[in-house]
Design a protein around this nucleic acid. Structure first.
Lengths: 145, 145
DNA sequence: CGTCCAATCGAGACTGTGTATCACTTGGTT
DNA sequence: AACCAAGTGATACACAGTCTCGATTGGACG
C-alpha cells in the first residue's frame, strides 16, 4: 500500500481506518498547500461532487487535530482555519493573502513563557503564538511599482 | 459627571454616546474582573433583567474592541472570550479556571517577530501571543495536599 | 476469499455565535 | 423645548460546528 500521503499515513499510524472519504479529504487538504477553513473544504468536496457529508468533514478535521497532523489557527478576523503540520511543538506564520504558511520552532518562547510565569505567578500550561503577514510571493505581487 | 468607570470613559473619549445600556454593560464587564464570553454577558444582563437586547451586547463588545478597550482572546477550546485592557500593544495571560487575566508587555516579542520575518522572508504585520494556565489563587485552591 | 462487526459514514435536525434589518427611542447639542 | 443622528430592541437570518441514527464499509480473522 504505497503512495500514501502524509495525512493518509497520519490516519493509519494513529490507528484509524483509511476510508475513502478520509483519503479524499487528505488529498484536498494537501492540494491546498496552506491554511484552510472548514467551509473551504466543504466547498472543495461539493465542487468535486465527492458525496462527502459535512459532518464527515468536521469529524476528519477534529480527528486530524487530535492526532496532531492539523492545527487550528485563529485568524485575526475571529474565524478558524486549519493548517497541516508535524506533531512537534511549533508555531505558524500565515500569509494573510494566499494562506500559505510555514512552521517555526520554539525560538526561545518556552524560556519566555517561564519568564512570564515567574513574573506573574501564573502556572502556564499552554501558549500560542501566531504571526500573520505576507509571504515572499505575495509581497512581490502586491508591489507593482 | 464624575464616577465614570474605565470603560465608560473609553466610550466617551472615543466620541461615542454614553447610553444607559452601555453604562450597564461597562459595569457588568468590570464586575467580572477577567475574561468573559459574549454569552456570559448576555446571561448577566438577562439575570438582572436589564432589558438589554442581544444585538446591543454584541455591538458594545465590537465597539469596545475597535476602541481598544477590549481585546478578543481565542481560548484553546476554540471559543472567543474578551478581556478589558489598555490600548498599548501587549499580550494576555489568562487563568483557565477563573478567567482572571493579566497583561504583559511586549517582552522582546517584537524583536522575535523581526527575527522570524528575516528567516522566513514573510513580512509580518500582526502577531498574537496568548498564554493560559492557573493564576496564583487557583493554584492554591487546586493543590489541597 | 467470504464473514463479521466496530468504526465510520451521510443526511438532516439541532445549538450557539454573531450579523442584518428596521421601526422606535434617546443623548446631547442648539 | 426641539431636533436628529446615534443608538436600541425585537426578530429574522447566516453560518459554524455538533448530535443522532440508520446504513455502509474497512480490514481482521478464519
Amino acid at each position: 500500500m504505497p503512495d500514501l500521503t502524509a495525512l493518509e499515513t497520519a490516519f493509519e499510524t494513529a490507528g484509524h481506518r483509511l476510508t475513502r472519504p478520509r483519503r479524499a479529504l487528505a488529498e484536498l487538504i494537501e492540494a491546498r498547500d496552506g491554511a484552510f477553513s472548514a467551509a473551504d473544504l466543504v466547498a472543495d468536496a461539493q465542487g468535486r461532487r465527492l458525496g462527502i457529508g459535512r459532518a464527515t468533514i468536521f469529524r476528519a478535521i477534529e480527528l486530524l487535530e487530535e492526532i496532531g497532523a492539523l492545527e487550528r489557527i485563529d485568524l485575526p478576523t475571529g474565524e478558524h482555519a486549519y493548517v497541516p503540520c508535524g506533531p512537534a511543538h511549533h508555531h505558524h506564520v500565515v500569509c494573510r493573502r494566499c494562506s500559505r504558511s510555514v512552521e517555526i520552532g520554539d525560538l526561545g518562547l518556552g524560556a519566555l513563557a517561564r519568564d512570564i510565569a515567574r513574573k506573574t505567578g501564573y502556572r502556564i500550561d499552554v501558549h500560542r503564538l501566531e504571526l500573520f503577514g505576507l509571504c515572499p510571493d505575495c509581497q512581490l505581487a502586491s508591489v507593482p511599482a
